[in-house]
Structure formats: C-alpha cells, structure tokens
Design a protein around this nucleic acid. Structure first.
Lengths: 200, 200
DNA sequence: CTGCAAACTTGCAGTGCGTGCAGCTTCCTT
DNA sequence: AAGGAAGCTGCACGCACTGCAAGTTTGCAG
C-alpha cells in the first residue's frame, strides 16, 4: 500500500518544514512585516525562488494549514459513531486534530500563536487558506448526515465550526485557559443555538 | 446635529465611490487579477498614489465594507426590541442592512457578486476587512445581552453570523433564490443549534 | 476679501512580492 | 548506465505598496 516515501519526497517535506519553522520563528521575533521572503529562504538554505514553489507567500508559510489536515478531519467526521449528532462529530474531530497537532510540536504552535496574537488579520487569512479544510469538512458532513454536498447545511456547519475555532484560538491567546476547554465551550454554545447567556 | 457635509467631504465620498465603482466594473469584465491599480485610478480620474489614500489595495476597493456599515449594524442590534433573543436581533439587523444596500444600488452588488463568484477567496478576504464589522457587532451584542464585551459569547455570535452571511452569499450566487431567503434559512439553522437536517 | 492653516493630491523613488522562463542538478526507473 | 522526470536556481519583468516632499484646494478667521 504505502511504499517508502523515497529520498525525493523526504527532502521535499524537509525543506517545507524548514521554511515553515524559519518563517514562524522570525515572525515571532521581529513581527511578520519585518520578515522578507529572502530572509526566510536564506534561513532555510534555499533560494528565494524555491520558496514560492512551496508557499504562495510568507503568510501561508506562517499560518498555512497542514495540507493533510483537511483529509484527516473529514475522515474523522465520517468515522465518528453515528448515534451522535453532526455537531458532536465535528467537535470530536476538531478536538482530536488539536490534540494531535499540539502533541506533535507544541513549541511551534506556541510561536505561531504569538505571531497571530500580534497580527489578528492572520487568523482570518489562515482560514482563507483553510477554505480547503472547510470545503472538505463540508463534504464529510454532507456524507455523514446524508444530504447533497452542495446543500446549505453542510457548508453552514463547516463555516460555523471554523468560526468557532477561530474565536476559540483568539480567546485562548488572551486568557489563560487550555485551548481544548475554550473550543468545547464555543462548540457547545453553537450546538445550543447561541441562546442568550445569563447576564453577568 | 448633522451639519452640511461640506464640499471637501462630498468630494471625498465622490472619489471613493468612483474608485469603488470602477474597480468592481473592471474586475467583473476582465477578472480581478487582470486589473491594475493604475487602471482603476485612471478610470476614476485620479493618480495611482491617491488610490492608496482610500484603499489598502484593489481587493478592498472591490469587496471592502462600507466604513459606516459597522456602526449601523451595531446600532440596529442594540435598538432591536428586547423581548427577542440576540440571534433574532442579529438576524433583523443583517436583513435590514442587506435590504438597504440592495435597494441603494442593486446593479453594483450584482457585479460585485459576479466577481466574488469567479474568485471565492475574496469572500473570506471581505470578512478579513470586515473584522471591523465583526468586532463592533460583538460589542453591540455584548451590550444587548449584558455581558462583558470581551466574553466568549458576543465574539462567537458575531463570528457565526458572519460565517452564515458568507455561506448565504456563496449559495445565493449559485442558486436562483433571493439573498434574504437564504440568509434567513442560514440564521434559523444557526438558532436551531445546527441540528441534523432530515436526510434527502 | 484676504491670507493662513489644514487637508487632499500628486510625482518620485525605493523596497519587496510574485511569476514565467530557461538551464542545470538530482533522483528514480528500467 | 541511460534516459526521463522532478526539483532548484538565477534572471528579468511587472505590479503592489509606502514615505517623502512638494503643489493645490478647501475651510475659516480676521
């Protein structure tokens, strides 16, 4: 099934990771607007021209989505036990994804979040590149609940989940609460129809 | 209260509108990537340098939000009859905004939507510039329901409403249904907690 | 009306982004 | 080992965007 990646592909992933890591690190140090593509590629030991063979721009190198995340999330949504609602399935999928990524390389995520915190526009842009994630998530939802994949419901749930994720990340970077907790809270509010909260 | 705008401000709005109109028109004709800032400013009769005194880039000129929309929406949310839920208030505010804008200059909106349809990235970018709208909407919601303006709920409802709006516009541009109808459907789904729809 | 100050426009120069192209190197296949 | 496929790189080009230092228009007070 899954043969050896081969030296070529291994190097590709290697340079991609290097570019991403350098981009995030430099952006966290100086602020992203004071980082040029030349800096990043120099730090990763490749030519500036090569940078653009991997990313469409420096923003994508910093907050761009894992190209495999979309498929993973979609599969998790479809595979989730069918007695739960679609919202539950999406919640579980997102939590699993977060847990896995955070475990993988926690330090890179923290740097990334520091960059995002200083530059909130990136959060939205991240989900602009994440339109891929959103579309595939919508496909998974459609398959799960058994409606046409171009219906309103799947697209809406996917978009709302993306919005909840975005808000959760934004809030996580300002308060001292684990991301999982905030994310659950947000998705539960969504599942509750965004009913008015108790006044404080 | 509201004194005469004065010649200066009138001219400013005039050039801004001209730039916006030319940008949308050209983008609808050739596709936005084949429109340069020079083209737009030439069409509006100003220098390219002046263009950047009004917009941060050509994308903003095409899909950028009305700078006054944020305040309008916020006020409508706060002023909505208090016996309704916050979601209802947001729904009413968005519908009113859509109705007003569509009535104002319907043709420009149609052109805009044609551009967006050929270039879906703009929809997300539009709400990147609309982060202002979203923040003020969140403020209004916070005031309305009586919670801190940096709480989770207001930000989440604002973001979810934005997502619903975005999905509704996307769907509107593919099916032949009035935007108001799709928007109501989307927001009602949101208010119903995104419960699983009946299988088709 | 006049003159001043603030606001707006403009050209210029400079940095950086992003892309097409052509040539070269590296890897994989047979 | 030979050929082809895929990746890397330098070059050149057009465009986006910004700071600065003028020039021009508008609003206002005297």
């Amino acid at each position: 099934m899954k043969s050896e990646p081969g030296l070529r592909d291994r190097k590709k992933r290697q340079t991609r990771d290097a570019l991403c890591r350098v981009a995030v690190t430099l952006a966290a140090e100086r602020g992203i607007e004071h980082v040029t593509v030349e800096d990043i590629s120099a730090g990763a030991g490749v030519s500036p021209r090569t940078f653009f063979n991997y990313f469409a721009g420096k923003e994508e190198a910093v907050v761009g989505p894992d190209p495999e995340a979309a498929a993973r999330i979609r599969d998790r949504v479809v595979a989730h036990p069918p007695h739960d609602s679609a919202v539950e399935a999406v919640k579980a999928a997102l939590l699993a994804e977060v847990a896995e990524n955070l475990a993988d390389d926690r330090d890179l995520w923290l740097l990334r979040m520091r960059v995002v915190q200083q530059n909130p526009v990136l959060l939205v842009r991240a989900f602009a590149g994440g339109e891929d994630v959103e579309r595939r998530l919508a496909d998974g939802i459609a398959e799960r609940v058994g409606v046409a994949s171009d219906a309103l419901y799947p697209a809406l749930l996917a978009a709302a989940a993306g919005a909840a994720f975005r808000v959760a990340v934004a809030r996580w970077s300002t308060v001292d609460e684990p991301l999982e907790h905030v994310l659950v809270e947000a998705l539960d509010l969504l599942a509750a129809g965004l009913a008015d909260p108790p006044r404080t």
